[in-house]
Computed example of a mutant assay.
Amino acid sequence: MHIDTLAVQTLRHHEHGAVVPPVHLASTFALDPATGEGPYAYQRGGNPTRAALETVLAALDGASHGFAFATGMAATAAVFETLRSGDVVVLPTSVYGGTYRFVERLLPARGITARYVDDLSALTDDDLPERTRMVFVETPANPTLRITDLRRVAELAHRHGALLVVDNTFMTPVLQRPLELGADIVVQSATKYLGGHSDLLAGVVTTDDPALAETLALAQKAGGGVLAPQDSFRLIQSIKTLPLRLGRQQDNAVAIAAHLRSHEGIAAVLTPGSASEEEARVHAEQAAGPGAVLSFRLAPGLDRVRFLRALNLPAYAVSLGGVESLICHPATMTHEAMTPEARDRAGITDDLLRLSVGIERVDDLIADLDQALAAAR
């Protein structure tokens, strides 16, 4: 089935013929006294509502196993539980600030080394040190929108016995399906597009590998960062409109990017594939569209604070993927955990702004951006 149908119809009829799943709030479940067994025992280990959500998440990614976590970073942390002391993880220099914080602050104490690469698409065998066990990719990268060739990196990683992990938050399975491109694990912040309304925190991990699924299930149960039943239910419902929301958001973003590229108040616009013809070709081959996030730099002489204060529609806030447009300053917000040197290497300059485009009328968004640019002079 097409993903538009899967988003709605993966779960069908439930108790009493209900067309939506019930919310099971129980923290504990009765077991068979003779065997001590039952389908569920304690909510942290499993819950029918969360299990229903995980079925949907796996179906969307074309995976055999799905896991729902309380936050995107809880999901990412579970993925890093697949590493052991002495292992090396390779990441792009332009990576989400929360991931950077986790890698830099927590992994060294576990004896795990991180190596950052400017352009993962140019990765060679010589760039993978001995004991490389994971290549962690964001494509498009946050917030530079740089593109990584997933098929090529998967082949390289697997040749060295390493896993390819893809953070697919920006694309979602609607626009990109990394497991079909060679990835071993996909992670997403479901707070963003999957939730889509800026009103819940959640994280997702999917995989087709049974052994990895066992490790992830243990990390989920032992770590305890599971998604609550109420939020699991809400996420199931939100996912049903994901293709519709993201389609409108993407159309709006394409129009806004084209408008800003022709505006004298804008020095540069960054979108997936804008860095080079090769990145544009790769993205066109592995994704179904550019998504709904773009970054840009104001022209010299324009005041950033004045511009942001003049905006009426996009809120100045972290996060992305909601139905409402949001704008942020990555250097001091989403990527503030990075050192100035790390941000400079990643291309996250002080003049860079990131815009997450919502479902508002695009004419209204463009008019608002125009008046704010005029006010910034």
Results as ranks from 00 to 15, higher is better:
L60Y: 11
Q220M: 07
L311S: 05
F296M: 06
G111T: 00
L294I: 12
Y316Q: 14
R281T: 04
R152Y: 12
A367F: 10
L60V: 11
F170C: 03
R345K: 03
R44S: 08
P290F: 06
L353M: 13
G358N: 05
P290L: 09
A114I: 00
L216I: 06
L120Q: 04
V357N: 00
V137E: 07
R133S: 13
R115T: 13
A202I: 01
L120T: 04
A59I: 10
T191Q: 06
T35W: 08
L128P: 03
R44N: 08
A280C: 09
K192F: 10
N312K: 15
P33V: 10
V269H: 05
V153D: 12
E360Y: 06
R306F: 06
P210V: 01
Y100A: 14
A74E: 03
V269A: 04
V318S: 08
L353V: 14
G225D: 05
A287W: 05
L355W: 07
A292K: 07
T191C: 02
A34Q: 08
S356H: 08
L298V: 07
L218C: 14
D364V: 03
P143N: 00
V293P: 12
T241C: 07
C328I: 13
P178F: 01
A222S: 15
A258D: 11
Q188G: 02
A372D: 03
G182N: 02
E264S: 09
G62S: 01
A70N: 10
R131E: 15
T55I: 03
V254S: 03
S325M: 03
G321Y: 00
V56Y: 07
K192S: 15
D184R: 08
P272M: 00
L270W: 13
Q220W: 02
R12W: 15
D208S: 15
K192L: 06
G289A: 14
A58G: 03
P290W: 10
D344L: 11
I266F: 04
A367K: 10
F29Y: 15
D350F: 10
V95Q: 06
Y40I: 02
S295R: 03
T28A: 15
T35G: 02
E138A: 05
R377A: 07
R245G: 02
L175N: 10
P290S: 11
S276V: 00
F170A: 14
T49I: 13
G321H: 01
E104V: 12
T271R: 08
E155F: 08
L6T: 10
L120E: 06
D126Y: 12
K240T: 14
E104T: 13
